[in-house]
């Protein structure tokens, strides 16, 4: 606490510490359960991604990029894979990717239902809004401290800090998307006899999908940036490479780690964004895309909904 020159002190810092102590003393079983659960999810993804031979995984990523985005992006993906292998940071990249996927999934699993609840109930929105503001404006490093206190060092506290930091856009954009569904669409749902859950699943969620997908994309991007920061409490991965670079003042190493993060970010961003627009179909299939490249069916490129 800086000296303010006044005999006036609100010990918010003390209160937070007291709260943290209390949680640590009384909620250990709960914390352990959370840690175990998260650990399970993270290891599952890590094992899965490391189970593939690196070349096969790289090929799959290139295929996905080509199918979802286009052949130019496919070429970019090839270049990115070559660089990641060439810099010798493939394993770190996979660890980071697993951590991003695991914490994003948990963030979405918690965030989207909260967003739905906010959209359906003004009181929930009123309560959740300031909490979300707090979560988004708090400097991300701050999350590292309680995460480390409760869960020690390693991937689990890294994932916890990440998922808290990355959750708000999913909540907000789910809420926004559902609230933006037009009155007449909602009325149409009700007029044909939708129950409240039918209205949600058959009308509101599908129509809110572009907004929700934008939220998911944002969450994944934030998760990636936080995972790098979380390497300070031992989350590992590409962040570790960067951190080592900083600690040793090794510009080359730091740049390599940073470039790895950038490449991963671009890949994740473009691929998740490609799910963002509502399509008339579930997306033109690979065959259709091949056909449209061959110029036989140029219409497939224009099959986009106006909204």
């Amino acid at each position: 606490m800086a000296e303010s020159g006044m005999n006036f002190d609100i010990p918010i810092g003390d209160w937070v510490e007291t709260g943290v102590d209390w949680i640590q003393n009384n909620l250990t079983p709960l914390l352990d359960a959370i840690a175990d659960g998260l650990d399970l999810i993270i290891s599952a993804f890590e094992d899965l991604l490391l189970f593939f031979p690196p070349l096969l995984l790289a090929a799959l990523i290139v295929l996905l990029a080509t199918w979802r985005v286009g052949w130019r992006f496919g070429l970019f993906a090839v270049g990115a894979m070559v660089l990641l292998f060439g810099m010798g940071i493939w394993e770190e990249t996979v660890v980071t990717l697993a951590l991003v996927i695991a914490s994003s999934l948990v963030a979405l699993a918690i965030g989207i239902p909260i967003g739905i609840a906010m959209a359906r109930n003004d009181k929930v929105e009123m309560i959740a809004r300031p909490i979300l503001d707090l979560m988004q404006t708090m400097p991300p490093f701050v999350y590292l401290i309680p995460a480390a206190i409760f869960f020690g060092l390693g991937k689990v506290p890294g994932a916890i800090a990440t998922l808290i930091f990355a959750m708000p856009p999913a909540v907000r954009l789910t809420n926004l998307g559902i609230r933006q569904v037009s009155t007449e669409h909602v009325e149409a749902g009700k007029a044909f006899g939708c129950t409240s859950s039918q209205l949600l699943f058959k009308v509101q969620l599908p129509l809110a999908m572009p907004s929700i997908m934008a939220g998911i994309n944002q969450t994944i991007m934030l998760a990636l940036s936080m995972v790098v920061i979380a390497s300070m409490i031992g989350a590992g991965g590409l962040g570790n490479t960067v951190l080592t670079g900083i600690q040793r003042l090794n510009v080359g190493l730091g740049f390599e780690g940073g470039l790895g993060v950038v490449l991963l970010a671009i890949l994740l961003d473009r691929i998740t964004q490609s799910y963002g627009h509502i399509r008339t179909r579930s997306g033109p299939g690979l065959v259709e895309r091949l056909r449209s490249w061959a110029g036989r069916n140029p219409d497939t490129q224009t099959l986009r909904s106006p909204n």
């Binding site: 007449e184 149409a188 006899g193 599908p206 129509l207 008339t280």
Partner: peptide
């Protein structure tokens, strides 16, 4: 039940589901 079986509605903006 009444809305499902007795009454249906047509809207000015059509309100169709695009997907």
């Amino acid at each position: 039940a009444m809305r499902r079986h007795q009454m249906s509605m047509v809207f000015q903006s059509f309100a169709l589901l695009p997907h």
